[in-house]
Design a protein around this nucleic acid. Sequence first.
DNA 1: CCGCGATGTGTACTGCCGTACGCATCGATG
DNA 2: CATCGATGCGTACGGCAGTACACATCGCGG
Lengths: 195, 195
Amino acid sequence: MARRYDPDRRQRIVDAAVRVVTEHGIAGLTHRAVAAEADVPLGSTTYHFAGRDELLAAALERMNDAWLADLAERLAQHSDLPPAERLARYVAHSLGPGRAETELCYELYFAGLRHPTLRPLSSRVLAGVAELLRPLVPDPVAARLLTAALDGLLIQLLLSGDAYDERAAVTLFERVLAGPLPATRTGSSPAGDTR
Amino acid sequence: MARRYDPDRRQRIVDAAVRVVTEHGIAGLTHRAVAAEADVPLGSTTYHFAGRDELLAAALERMNDAWLADLAERLAQHSDLPPAERLARYVAHSLGPGRAETELCYELYFAGLRHPTLRPLSSRVLAGVAELLRPLVPDPVAARLLTAALDGLLIQLLLSGDAYDERAAVTLFERVLAGPLPATRTGSSPAGDTR
DNA sequence: CCGCGATGTGTACTGCCGTACGCATCGATG
DNA sequence: CATCGATGCGTACGGCAGTACACATCGCGG
């Protein structure tokens, strides 16, 4: 029972928490599970984190950062391709080996929806994605819309299990990317021109 | 302790389960909570439903049906407006008084993602939405893309708490709705034309 | 070298949960 | 009206969770 000298125990606990959440979901995050995963006694997790919530928040924050980093990296790759193609590639990537991670990210998203504590985290990720997409698009509003299209498409593919139609995805992104928002005009004309 | 004659007890239990899920989320659905909400003894919920899962599935199915019915109704209204406007109106409606319900629906969505048991339900709703959107659009693939745009936009608005920019939404829908998919051509040309 | 506070460890307490089960009651069937 | 199975009711049991807490150990400042 010799007490171990373990200066970054806290760090390792967060790592373990991330693994636990990845495997068992948010509901599966318990002090005991994390302690076992980190190979530390139960009391240790309660010592370093005031409560379950704090532990969860720490894990989520790290996972969010990883997500944004991954997106940034993927967007940087293939920088020769047109934006719509790059986004479609990113979708393909998200559905590939890292699919489980993608599913997690969206689970966290919605965890923020129910638990007010986590909302700022969700909001931050959302803003982060929009920011990364910003260079592809003429204005911030368009970046938000593009984010919506990306999210919606990914969610649908994750849920339906349908095969990924990359050509359709490219088309979707091309359309959303098409030029600056005509609606930028502050005019209040209610009827959209069908073009 | 006189035993009550209560022919549609099962029904009322489902109702109570819906209310419990609405208020406390999926994680909050317990036999005890439902029993209390339905004002029946604990043993009653376990008698009518084999287990927690069955109870949850029953509640979710009902909520999903309600969601689709609401969407159908909203789309039928304002049938004079162009489709993009109608969709934007629906988004506004979803963010209004029924916002809590909307949030619930998406929570259920992702519950299906983690729990394989519930996946068919999620998938069914997804297909249902796409089917309702089908008449607005030239082909089924476009309906799926439109569904993605709608979902993505709603999710973003629910999470970010940003004000709803209805004009931007209309623009988004107009673009996604624009004509039949050019990608319908089976051609395999890999590079999208930058137009 | 010496204490002392930070850190680590093990365990116990309390509460909630799913589920099982024995008994009570009543509608329906003959 | 007699009976029986479906339905209703209350309670108990085992498991797992969060948290608290007493004690052990060790780095570090004096």
